[in-house]
Computed example of a mutant assay.
Amino acid sequence: MIEAQGLRKTFTTRSRKGTQTVEAVRGVDLDVEKGEIFGVLGPNGAGKTTTIRMLSTLITPDAGTAVIAGHDLRKDPAAIRRELGYVSQAGGVEDTTSARAQIMMAARIHSVDDPKGATAGVLERFDLAEIADRPGRTLSGGQKRRVAIAIGLVHNPPLLFLDEPTTGLDPQNRANLWERIRQLREAGTSVLLSTHYLDEADVLCDRLMIVDHGLVVAEGTPAALKREVSGDVITLRVNELERAAETLKPHARETRVDEDVLRVYVDDGEHTLPALLRALEEQGLALTSIALDRSTLDDVFLAKTGRTLRDAGAAA
């Protein structure tokens, strides 16, 4: 559905302090297959939204090429717009107009043959029929997000862009929206989803890429990316962190000091842990706490960039 190579975008801002140039996207490649959820994971300011806005024809890339739903991004942007739905971070739900009216307007803009029937269909699909005639300002955050997605899907596009779709939602509404997104995939819709939520990317995405400072630092399935880092992570609080890291290196794939803890990446934590404890004891290193966990996408980000996704300014 999407084949993109070398996408770049630079913004120039002017203020009293002078002109500032920001390289928002510095050469992004991505491929999205038909009927999959592909995630773009990264901290705020990493270039996720800029990438999606380029692919959705809202802004023009400074460099790079892309073919989306069979159409060239530069040569035929109008054809691409007919093939996709786009839901921005803000959602785009108007306060004074009913959900039904907003969805029907979107259907007419996209020249849907039966706008009334298409509107009724997406209202039913997203459990919005009971609130369809209420103005947008009376809807909850979760309801507004569902209305926004219904607006993006009323013309039945094969490709849907979701930019930070669950930001600001409570856990129950997030889980509900996750299920709706899974149903889209099961119905054959390809979804490109940007997020800074680690659990969201892990649970939803068939494949994903991790971006930082406008560059792709890792790509693959969530499981494969975590296996690449290590099978397990042992987190230690111990005196003399640097000496402890050197002591445990022979027993680990990698050791990394992260602020006041030592992370030890190993293939099999349960069987490696006794050897680590013996090595620390032999060196007279005092241990205050220990935790054994499976690798997470935050560990992948840490391994690729030298800092955690949380430290980079994203929500956990």
Rank of each mutant, 00 (worst) to 15 (best):
I2P: 03
A4V: 06
L7E: 02
K9F: 04
T10Y: 07
R14D: 14
Q20D: 13
V22K: 05
V22P: 02
E23P: 12
V25I: 04
R26G: 12
V32S: 11
K34I: 04
G45V: 02
A46E: 10
T50N: 12
L55S: 13
P61C: 12
R74I: 08
P77W: 10
A79S: 13
R81V: 14
L84K: 07
G85F: 04
T96E: 15
A99L: 03
Q102M: 11
I103Y: 00
V112N: 03
D113R: 02
G121V: 01
D127W: 00
L128C: 03
L128E: 01
E130Y: 07
R134M: 10
P135E: 11
S140L: 12
A148N: 01
A148H: 01
I149V: 13
A150W: 01
G152E: 03
N156Q: 14
F161A: 04
T166F: 09
T166I: 09
Q172D: 10
A175F: 10
N176M: 11
V203P: 11
V203G: 13
D206I: 10
D212C: 12
V216R: 05
R227M: 08
E228H: 09
T235P: 03
R237W: 06
N239E: 15
A244C: 10
K249A: 15
R253H: 15
E259R: 14
L262M: 05
H271Y: 05
T272Y: 13
A275K: 14
L277Q: 10
L280P: 02
L280M: 13
D293W: 00
R294E: 15
D298Q: 12
V300P: 01
R307I: 06
A312L: 08
